[in-house]
Design a protein around this nucleic acid. Structure first.
Lengths: 116, 116
DNA sequence: GTCCGTTGTGGGAATTTTGCATAACGAAAA
DNA sequence: TTTTCGTTATGCAAAATTCCCACAACGGAC
C-alpha cells in the first residue's frame, strides 16, 4: 500500500451548489495575471468553455459581478477582475492556506506507520 | 451572501483513483453494524448496486479483501468485515477526526466578518 | 474592409452514474 | 424433497452529467 495518497478538497456552496474551490481560485488568479479568460484557461489547462461555465455559475450564485469583460477591440478584447472579486479571492486564499498541509501531515502520522 | 457554507472532502487514492472516503467509511461502519451489505446500503441511503460497486473497487485497488461474504443459508447470507478492513477503517476514522471541524472554524474566522 | 484574438453559446458527443431486473445461493422450514 | 426467504452478484439500459467542437459577434489596428 505504498502508493496510497491523501487528497482533499475544499469548496464553498451557495444554495447547495458549488460556487468556489481550488479550480476556480486558479482560474481567477490566472485571469488576474493575464487579462484574458482564454489565456487563463490555457494556462491552467482547462477549456475556454469550461472556464466560461465556471464564471457564469459563480456570478449567478454569488450574485455579483466577478469579471469585467470586453469583446473585440485592441488585442481582441480581454477580462479583468472586479475589486469585489479580488477581495473575495484574497479571502479564499487565506481560507485555503495551510489546510492541505495539515491534512497531509495527519495522513502521514496516521497511515505511515506501516501496519495494517 | 449569508447562505454561503463551507464544504470539505477527504479521500484516499491508489494509482490516481479514489479508494476510500466518507461515504465508504459509512458503508463499512454500517456493514460492521448490521452484518449485511444490503441492509447497510439501505441504512446509509444508497442502492445495493452502488455499495457493491464501492466494495469491488476498494478491494481491487487496495489489494486485500475487506469483506467476507456468504450467499444463501441462514437469513439468506450476510457479510462481515475482515480484521484488516477493521484496522483500515479505524485508521481512516482517526484521520478524518477533527479535520472538518477545523475547516469550519477557519471558514468562520475568514469569511464571517461581513465585508467584501 | 480585412485581420486578429478575444468573448459568447448552442448542441451533440462522450463519459459517468444510476438503478432496474433477474440469477444464484443454501439453511431452514414445510 | 421441495418451497421459502433474504441475501449476494451482475449485466445492461437509461438518465444525468461533463466535455468539447464549431461557429457567431465584436471592434481596434492596420
Amino acid at each position: 500500500m505504498e502508493d496510497m495518497e491523501i487528497r482533499s478538497k475544499l469548496w464553498i456552496e451557495v444554495g447547495g451548489r458549488p460556487v468556489f474551490g481550488r479550480g476556480r481560485r486558479f482560474l481567477l488568479e490566472a485571469i488576474d495575471k493575464y487579462g484574458s479568460i482564454n489565456r487563463a484557461a490555457k494556462e491552467i489547462n482547462i477549456s475556454y468553455r469550461k472556464a466560461w461555465g465556471y464564471i457564469k455559475a459563480m456570478e449567478e450564485r454569488l450574485g455579483f459581478k466577478l469579471i469585467e469583460r470586453q469583446t473585440g477591440g485592441k488585442n481582441g478584447g480581454g477580462a479583468v477582475l472586479t475589486e469585489k472579486a479580488k477581495r473575495f479571492l484574497k479571502k479564499y486564499e487565506e481560507l485555503e492556506c495551510g489546510i492541505r498541509e495539515s491534512v497531509d501531515d495527519k495522513f502521514r502520522r496516521v497511515f505511515k506507520d506501516n501496519s495494517l
